[in-house]
């Protein structure tokens, strides 16, 4: 049933730290790897070795630059994947019931056996979290690695999403955002975690942590060159020309 369940107490999701993300794309690769090599239908690539390869990914990392009012310009790497919204528009538009939100932990999933590949859920999502798998003809999206986090055959430390497990800088955190005492909730409170496009009223579970304010450098890297004093012939020319 594609009606949304009442808000669950447990809200599993990710907290992404834009301060520490270095844009290495390891999470993209780990995500593709886990979802490609495990059980179930793989995430297909079309024309993978041709002139214009195109593939299905559940996670993408963009790079943006900003110029704060004070301080140096910043480059911010920005991972983008499903935010497992509480008020998920992708769920209610689905005509077949393939798209659903789990009542117990809030994970938004696609039942690929019921998906007709109409793409309406991708249209309804403001965040571009869903892509049509051109080979399978069904919609694919982040599962929050539901096949890892509850998997008791994996060692304890591996029971987190593949992107979180692989991140070399610890920029991705996984936990229960419904519990105000959880590590991720405290992190969000401390660092001022925020929602993407709050105006869309999707109430995302995933939060983003803003880049920390960087202090301006004491002296600009090129400052020593500005006051360079000309000596010798150049200095003589400098004085002569200055006299005119």
């Amino acid at each position: 049933m594609t009606a949304l369940p009442p808000p669950s107490a447990r809200k599993l999701g990710l907290v992404i730290d834009l301060d520490t993300c270095v844009g290495c794309q390891a999470c993209v690769t780990a995500c593709k790897g886990w979802n490609d090599q495990g059980a179930g239908a793989p995430l297909s690539d079309m024309n993978a070795y041709g002139s214009e390869p195109c593939g299905t990914f559940l996670n993408r990392v963009h790079s943006y630059e900003t110029q704060p009012v004070e301080g140096p310009a910043e480059v911010v790497n920005f991972p983008r994947s499903c935010l497992h919204c509480e008020n998920a528009p992708c769920v209610t538009v689905c005509p077949t019931g393939a798209s659903f939100k789990r009542a117990e932990d809030g994970i938004v999933l696609v039942n690929e056996d019921a998906c007709i590949g109409c793409g309406l859920c991708a249209w309804a999502c403001p965040y571009g979290a869903r892509e049509l798998d051109a080979a399978a003809g069904v919609m694919k999206k982040c599962t929050l690695c539901v096949d890892r986090i509850y998997n008791e055959t994996l060692p304890e430390e591996d029971r987190v999403p593949a992107c979180v497990r692989t991140c070399p800088t610890g920029a991705r955190h996984f936990g229960d955002l419904g519990d105000p005492e959880s590590a991720v909730s405290r992190l969000v409170a401390e660092r001022g975690g925020y929602d993407l496009m709050p105006g869309m009223e999707t109430k995302p579970v995933n939060k983003y942590l803003p880049p920390r304010r960087k202090g301006a450098a004491a002296a600009g890297p090129l400052d020593p060159l500005v006051d360079l004093e000309a000596r010798g012939v150049a200095g003589w020319l400098d004085r002569i020309l200055g006299a005119f």
Binding site: L18, C54, S63, E65, T66, V69, L196, Y208, P211
Partner: peptide, 24 residues
Amino acid sequence: LQSATGLGPDPRVLAQAHTAPNYL
């Protein structure tokens, strides 16, 4: 782009997330 990323003021695209167009 500012409300979509929470970055500001006036962020701009530095590098695309992928080199070939995707489904989106």
